[in-house]
Amino acid sequence: MSQVQGGFTKQMARNMFYGGAVFFALLFAAIVFHTEQRIPERSNAAAITPQVVAGKKIWETRNCIGCHTLLGEGAYFAPELGNVIERRGPDFVKAWMKAQPTGAPHRRQMPQFNLTEQQLDDLVEFLKWTGQINTEKWPPNIEG
């Protein structure tokens, strides 16, 4: 009843494993190589200013991904931020971060990160650039 009896030997199974793994690894590497060439255009890489880079660092060192999603990846505890500038506008985002935590009882709380005006601007620039990435029209609507 098992599929691997009869003429199918262990050596054949092993060869299928090695052959298949190597073939698909190479194919994957080739496609990734092609994708690499496309990334600058799809991500509008020319618009990555030092401010965007600084903003990404703020994003990372405050562990924002621990609550939020960015392009759908991260934790699912707080809103998607890939399109937050489009949804809320830069001023709202900055004001929001300054006002945290809300302290509303039993509501989810966002920590106060005490960012300087410069750091807030960097973060906004990073999120603004992120919003321009060609994501194949994801998310489906403005709510993220």
Binding site: G20, F24, L27, F28, L71, I133, E136, P139
Partner: peptide, 20 residues
């Protein structure tokens, strides 16, 4: 064998909406 033959290119299911 099947794990890698499907799983390596299966990485693509994470690449749908992140700019690739």
């Amino acid at each position: 064998a099947f794990a890698l033959m499907t799983g390596i290119l299966g990485t693509g299911h994470h690449f749908y909406f992140i700019g690739l």
